[in-house]
């Protein structure tokens, strides 16, 4: 009994205010997602009628809408493009960021600090600023409406590098030296020692890259002008546009389908994400 009281602590005005604020923020964050479910899994028009319902009423109606979206629009193709785009970006970002982080964090070479400083400056430059020169370059390479045009410009991730550098700095130098004495070459040390020791950080970076790539709207919109190169973001954007002639429940279904993969990812890996971010902040 006393233990329970001790854990709860005395109820003060501050506690009440804190909880009220937290619950209010949670409602603001969760309600739109809940509303999306509600609209999708109800008979068309029901939740937005004069007598709105706050809970789903028809599972079959929702399934019908999902089937309709997948079969009658280019949504499935966009899903494929988005997943390929996300997976290729993840592989590329992990490879490039980890190789660069390995060098920056564990070895000394001339110009290291300046180069790392320049990379970190890139973190502060908004994407919108670099998007036109990047577009021009990609266009000159003839990569418009191609998968490489979509993927390659996003492979050098300053954030990913920063995060992995923080992790790899925590790898004991003696471990690298022991590997050198054991006859491991530069790449072998990276592959057999540094990389496995940073697996947690790599998983975190993969998840964050997935969420970011999946939600990326601007770059795919600019680079992919042909419908067969549309990503989920663009297709959802078309559903959302004022002249799309889609009813609100179809639009909501398209949005829900777009939101499910990152939501699932986050729900499954949320511990890893929090751990990863917390570790990258404290271990540096």
């Amino acid at each position: 009994m006393s233990r329970t009281t001790a854990l709860r602590g005395p109820v003060t005005v501050w506690t009440v205010l804190k909880w009220t604020l937290a619950i209010a923020i949670a409602i603001v964050a969760v309600f739109p997602i809940w509303w999306m479910f509600n609209v999708v899994f109800s008979q068309p028009g029901e939740p937005v009628s004069l007598n709105p319902r706050l809970w789903p009423t028809s599972l079959s109606a929702g399934i019908d809408k999902i089937r309709m979206i997948f079969t009658e629009t280019g949504y499935l193709g966009a899903y494929f493009i988005s997943i390929t785009y996300a997976l290729l970006t993840i592989v590329g970002v992990l490879l490039i960021a980890s190789l660069a982080a390995f060098e920056f964090s564990l070895f000394k070479f001339p110009g290291r600090r300046i180069m790392f400083g320049i990379v970190m400056l890139a973190l502060m430059v908004p994407t919108a600023v670099t998007i036109i020169p990047t577009y021009l370059l990609t266009s000159r390479l003839g990569w418009l409406n191609t998968m490489q045009g979509l993927v390659v410009p996003g492979l050098a991730s300053a954030f990913g590098l920063f995060m992995l550098v923080q992790f790899m700095r925590a790898v004991p130098k003696e471990m690298i030296e022991a590997a050198r004495l054991d006859g491991a070459g530069h790449f072998q040390i990276y592959w057999h020692v540094a990389l496995p020791l940073c697996s947690n950080a790599m998983i975190t970076l993969a998840i964050l890259t997935f969420i970011q790539t999946w939600g990326n709207y601007m770059w795919p919109l600019i680079i992919g002008t042909r419908t067969e190169m549309y990503t989920v973001g663009q297709v959802v954007g078309m559903f959302n546009s004022p002249l799309s002639h889609h009813t609100v429940d179809t639009v909501m279904t398209a949005n829900l389908l777009a939101a499910i993969p990152p939501l699932l990812f986050f729900l499954i890996f949320q511990r890893k994400i929090v751990e990863g971010i917390a570790m990258s902040g404290t271990k540096g």
Binding site: P172, E174, M175, E177, A178, A179, H192, V193, P196, L197, S199
Partner: peptide, 9 residues
């Protein structure tokens, strides 16, 4: 090494 430098994985 003093810290043994064993590979933990």
């Amino acid at each position: 090494f003093q810290s043994y430098a064993l590979y933990p994985h």
